[in-house]
Amino acid sequence: MSSYIDAFEKVTGQPAPPEAGKLDQLFNQIRQGKTLPPRGQQAVAMGLTAHTLNDAREDPALFAYYRWVMTHCFKSGQVNELTARLIGMAFTSANIFDTDLPQPLTLNPWQLTPMLDFPLKNKQAVVIENNGVFALLHQEHPDWPLILQSGNDFNEVYVQLIQRPEARGMRYVYLGDLDSAGIQMADQFARLLKQTSAEEVAALQQPTDVRLWLADLGKIDVRRTKQRKVVSPVYQAEMTTIALFGKFIEQEQLMGVYEERIAEWLEATEV
């Protein structure tokens, strides 16, 4: 039996789908470090339809098996494939890279490698969770160094373009919605970093701030304030406060506060 099928069935307790064996060829190529074509071509080469490895609706059981093996049998970054994905794998920022191109700048996977060591325009960056807040801050302050988090999309391009600049001296702060999901995203972002503490990441939105803002501006919503698991103590404190208050705040409500605090932070941390 295939070692991948065996591992899947032992761990999940579920039978592998009938066509699971067809993927052994692909998995073996990954293990050997071979460069793979785009995912649609990979699927066709194994006798599957082009969307099988990209779209769960094509063959749900086989897609679930494929994702399980990719997640549990290979390390992050081990897959060397030519990507055909541009949408949903982007990194959008303003005034981070030292380029004459109009800002904001959106990078796709094909641009990743040369940008990892591209000259930096700034050594500070404010990471913004929501698209609209990012756009408004950039419009009002076109010289500010901003990075769009874009919700919970921690795609591979985004992660590498956060971690490499940090290794080169970049400092980050994070601003997001003050609800359970927003705090969980902030915690996830902080855990991407190797040289920056979660307390530094939360410098503009600290637990004492959260308590005051919730009391003054918070909106009641049980669904958006349920306790979620976070790791960093600073975000555990904020999560607990949100759950206890049963209230949340959206980024748009804090624009005035953001502008004042970002300006002060950029001035205080300027290299």
Rank of each mutant, 00 (worst) to 15 (best):
Q188G: 01
E200F: 10
K75G: 14
Y65L: 09
K75R: 10
I96Y: 00
G40R: 08
L53S: 10
P102H: 12
P119W: 05
L101C: 07
E166T: 05
M185I: 14
G88C: 03
G132H: 10
S2T: 09
N130K: 11
N130Y: 01
E238A: 05
M70V: 07
H72I: 08
M89L: 12
L266H: 00
V157D: 08
L146V: 13
A167E: 04
P38M: 06
E260R: 15
M170I: 05
V271K: 14
Q206S: 09
I249R: 14
F97R: 02
L192H: 01
W144C: 14
A50D: 08
P165Q: 09
G13R: 07
S93V: 12
E166W: 04
E200Y: 03
Q184C: 00
K34Y: 03
Y172Q: 01
I30L: 14
Q253M: 14
K10Q: 15
D143T: 09
Y158K: 13
P109N: 08
D153T: 03
P109I: 03
R85I: 03
N131S: 14
V127E: 01
W265T: 02
V222A: 12
T196P: 04
F189Q: 08
V231G: 03
K10F: 09
R168Y: 02
P37K: 11
K22F: 07
W110Q: 15
G33N: 09
W213P: 04
K194Y: 02
D216Q: 15
M255A: 14
I262D: 13
K10G: 11
I183K: 02
S3C: 13
T35G: 00
L86A: 12
W144Y: 10
A263H: 11
F245E: 15
W110D: 15
W110S: 15
T99K: 09
G182W: 00
R67F: 00
A90W: 04
E58V: 06
G33H: 07
D187A: 05
E267I: 13
I128D: 00
Y4I: 07
E267A: 13
S180E: 06
L23N: 04
L214V: 12
M46C: 10
Q78N: 12
N131C: 09
Q163I: 06
L53G: 04
E238F: 03
A7I: 07
Q149N: 15
Y66A: 15
Q139I: 08
A202Q: 03
V69D: 02
K22V: 05
Q188T: 02
Q78Y: 00
